[in-house]
Design a binder for these strands. Structure first.
Ligand SMILES: [Mn+2]
Ligand SMILES: [Mn+2]
Ligand SMILES: [Zn+2]
Ligand SMILES: [Zn+2]
Lengths: 159, 159
DNA sequence: TTGTTAGTTAGCAATACTTGCAAACTAGGG
DNA sequence: CCCTAGTTTGCAAGTATTGCTAACTAACAA
């Protein structure tokens, strides 16, 4: 993703406005390697700008994605994760805590299917699943589903 | 996934019952390479067994997944896809029509992240995105989202 | 500064997918 | 044929995301 300043220029040049909400989201995304969900971003955004709406977070994330400034990652668990790192890279996903780490894989871009020679490849993605250092050390065996449940606070009206 | 007959035995030996619904689902899944969603399976199941419930399809698919007889695949678009092919393989996903094809990738299992040497890998997945032969030939440029919309019949009460 | 307006935001309804629940049903053993 | 543990259904509820629109405001011009 480009810097907040560059995005500002880019937005304005597209006839879009530079609102405080957008500026905040740009800054929260800048150098963010956590692969956040819309909801988690909304959490930190709300802390700095009470009243900002989840709807606006979704809207801005979608705009950035359409502009090619963000990548979407869909692991099975939970919602879509957003990735401001648009350079070629791959991911290691911890099946215990759900954290996603950026990794680089030598030779990944030249991988080809043995079969399906008639398939026109536009993109190759490699995903490693396993345990991150922390979870491995902790010797945890919790499933991601259980993890999610445990870190869940009772929600009243989140619709 | 094991054969319907083997699954029958396996289910009974676990104290589970062999119902007509389960038998039907086993047979629909056997040698099925379409990576169906619960909903699409429900469609074909309903044709052969009117009255079978979507709930039961989900239930059976989840049971098979827990038993390790099915793999779950989550592409961004639409619901979870189920894969009765549990041998090591990878996928080519058409960004136009959404079809998923099984592919084999030489050397995939020995891929390692350059960084993240502290990550304990349990599984490596490779995904190719691009155009399948049909869509490529057709020269289609439709997005999967648009595709989905176009093939959508108005739903009344699908909740 | 002020006015104008196209674009944006907030909030709530609606949708899509999946699971929770409980009453009715039934496979499989005795 | 009976019993009952396990199953199926139908519907409510939950989660993630988008549709809609009235109220708001950034950007620009006067
Ligand atoms: Mn990343
Ligand atoms: Mn497959
Ligand atoms: Zn972890
Ligand atoms: Zn295609």
């Amino acid at each position: 993703m480009h810097s907040p300043a560059e995005l500002a220029t880019q937005f304005r040049s597209m006839g879009r406005k530079l609102t405080p909400q957008r500026q905040l989201i740009f800054s929260l995304l800048h150098n963010n390697q956590s692969h956040p969900t819309a909801e988690s971003l909304y959490g930190v955004a709300s802390a700095q700008m009470p009243g900002i709406s989840l709807r606006t977070v979704y809207q801005t994330l979608n705009e950035l994605a359409e502009m090619g400034e963000l990548l979407l990652i869909d692991i099975g668990e939970g919602g879509t994760r957003f990735d401001p790192n648009i350079d070629e890279h791959h991911h290691a996903i911890c099946s215990d805590c759900g954290k996603i780490r950026d990794v680089h894989v030598k030779g990944a871009s030249s991988l080809k299917p043995n079969d399906a020679r008639d398939f026109l490849i536009s993109e190759v993605g490699v995903v490693f699943k396993g345990l991150c250092a922390e979870c491995e050390a902790r010797g945890s065996k919790r499933s991601p589903a259980l993890q999610a449940k445990m870190s869940q606070k009772p929600k009243s009206s989140s619709k």
